[in-house]
Amino acid sequence: MKTNDVILQTGTKVVFFIIFLFSIHIFFAGHFAPGGGFVGGLLTTAAIVLLLLAFDLKTVQKALPFNFMIVVAVGLLLALGTAAGSILFDVPFFTHAYDDFNLPLFGVSSLHTAMIFDAGVYLVVVGSTITMIQTIGGDS
């Protein structure tokens, strides 16, 4: 059984990174193709769930030493902050801004404040689902 575990665990690590990267991709794709913060976040969660299945809770917690409730809070702040930024400019709440920027590494790319908002969504989704899973898993 031990060997199987090792194989499983190694396999999982690989799959985890694949799913994780995919989730990041999905997240960025959101504005133009199917995807976005939700799905991205949920996929990340799914990846972590996979880790949980292969390893035990403690190991995963060690590997990801965040307080996920704080992640939730940060996500919410980010989302709210993006939306509330418009208050500073006295335009209606949630008025997004976007422009093309010439960034050193990426070349000309379109940056949209909606993306920041979506990042907040991503964090909240990851944070709260992982919190749930951790607490349920930790309950004996």
């Binding site: 939730v72 909240v124 944070g127 689902t129």
Partner: peptide, 8 residues
């Protein structure tokens, strides 16, 4: 997402 957070 607030709902989700509260559920968490």
């Amino acid at each position: 997402i607030a709902v989700l957070a509260i559920a968490g």
